[in-house]
Design a protein around this nucleic acid. Structure first.
Lengths: 161, 161
DNA sequence: ATAGAACCTTACGTAAACGTAAAGTTCTAG
DNA sequence: CTAGAACTTTACGTTTACGTAAGGTTCTAT
């Protein structure tokens, strides 16, 4: 189905926009590629799927501000899934596949819940900022009306609204 | 206009949900109350306005994940405004007030821009998660149809959708 | 006036998330 | 088959954002 191109750590790092150190650190925490058995000292290899996964982790970190510890918790179930990942490709057992899918769903649901919650909070925040901005502009209008624009020498009349 | 209740650092900390250390640290960074001259060794005093301001800082930190350094940059202009804050209460000069308001507006606009940008990014994120979730559920249906639910002993038939 | 709570300053400590250096090994192109 | 680029492990270093302890001071209630 996919051209299982083997990527090296440097390529993955560049594409995702992190350093190789970060990738190794994440592996150390059990967030990445601990699955693929690797002869000691040999280079790490990654797939496109790994790249996507890493990008997801980075987004959970940057957008939701989760600590790596929290991400580990969140992804714990997915770890099992990732471990089974290899099976997916080679294991045509429908029963197994069903179990994998059923294990993945609640994980995505939890992530979605977190994102939605953050969206709500940000909605409130932007609402308050808009109100504040409106108040300030209103106040500016009142004050500007009370004061003939005498002093300001070079403020072109291109003010907003 | 307002009951200028003087709050102490402990009260402020409790109400905002941070420690006193945090408040002192923020002051050290120039984010808070460096303005009010204080006799050396005397207790710090705060107003309701300060509480609101601190809450804003915390939200910028938690919701947008800004570093304190970045917040300092963002609030730099507001610092000047805060310094002038004292003037606001006692200075009835309309010209001064106008300048204060005009200084505050672009700051709020910048914050709003940051929040909106984050909202967009989260919108994309949740969209992708929804798609992913949909795909997984679809796949589950297909697989469930291919497999008569023989084994599962106690999974009540209350599955979603 | 005095006890105790709350605060002050100073300064060293800490956890998370990597950065960076060293010394050796594996890959890959020519 | 060999040079050098990219990788490996190991381990100590660094930054941010506070935590925490010590020793003294200021407030406030009685």
């Amino acid at each position: 189905m996919s051209t299982a191109e083997a990527l090296r750590i440097g390529e993955v790092a560049e594409r995702v926009g992190v350093t190789t150190r970060t990738i190794r650190y994440y592996e150390e925490l059990g967030l990445l590629g601990g699955g693929g058995a690797r002869e000691k000292g040999a280079h790490r290899t990654y797939t496109e799927t790994d790249v996507v996964r890493l990008q997801e982790l980075i987004r959970l970190r940057d957008l939701l501000g989760l600590t790596l510890e929290e991400i580990v918790q969140l992804a714990e179930a997915e770890e099992a899934r990732a471990a089974l990942r290899g099976l997916w490709e080679e294991n045509p057992s429908a029963a197994e596949r069903l179990r994998i899918v059923e294990a993945a769903i609640p994980l995505v649901e939890r992530q979605l819940a977190l994102v939605r919650h953050r969206q709500q909070t940000l909605e409130e925040f932007s609402g308050e900022l808009e109100t504040k901005l409106g108040t300030l502009k209103q106040r500016r209008r009142e004050l500007a009306r009370a004061i003939p624009p005498e002093s300001a020498p070079a403020v072109r009349p291109g003010q907003d609204r």
